[in-house]
Amino acid sequence: MVLLLSLLLPASQALAQAAATGPEMADTLRQDGKIYVVVAVIAVVLAGLLVYLISLDRKLTRLEKEVHAQ
């Protein structure tokens, strides 16, 4: 038990220090102004998925109405 704690304690301290300093990649992207490109690409992909799901729902609704009408 003591051996396990002695192995886990340094690892947890290292993770806590890494979390406290923050992600370096996000800081670099923010400084270069590229974070806005990343956000824009994510927004476009999510908007595309939303439009696709809405159109798919409309098609399914139309097909369901055709099946129930027969």
Rank of each mutant, 00 (worst) to 15 (best):
M25Q: 11
V39W: 01
L53V: 05
V37T: 07
L5R: 01
A43W: 01
L63H: 10
A69L: 10
V45Q: 04
P23Q: 10
L4T: 08
V45P: 04
L46K: 00
D57T: 15
L53H: 03
I54Y: 08
L8I: 08
Y52A: 14
V51K: 01
L5A: 12
E24R: 09
P23Y: 05
A69Y: 08
K59P: 03
P23D: 09
A69S: 13
L60M: 13
L15T: 03
L29F: 08
Q13K: 14
L46R: 00
A43H: 02
T28K: 15
L56F: 06
A20D: 06
G48K: 05
Q13F: 15
L46I: 13
A26N: 06
Y36P: 00
L29C: 04
L5Y: 11
T21C: 06
T61D: 14
E66F: 04
V41Y: 05
V51E: 00
P10A: 08
A19M: 04
P10W: 01
G22D: 00
Q31D: 06
L4M: 09
Y52Q: 12
V37C: 05
L56M: 08
D57E: 09
V2N: 10
G33I: 08
L8T: 04
G33E: 04
G33R: 01
L4I: 12
L7K: 09
P10F: 01
S12I: 11
L29D: 02
L60P: 03
E66G: 05
I42D: 12
A14I: 04
K59L: 15
A26W: 13
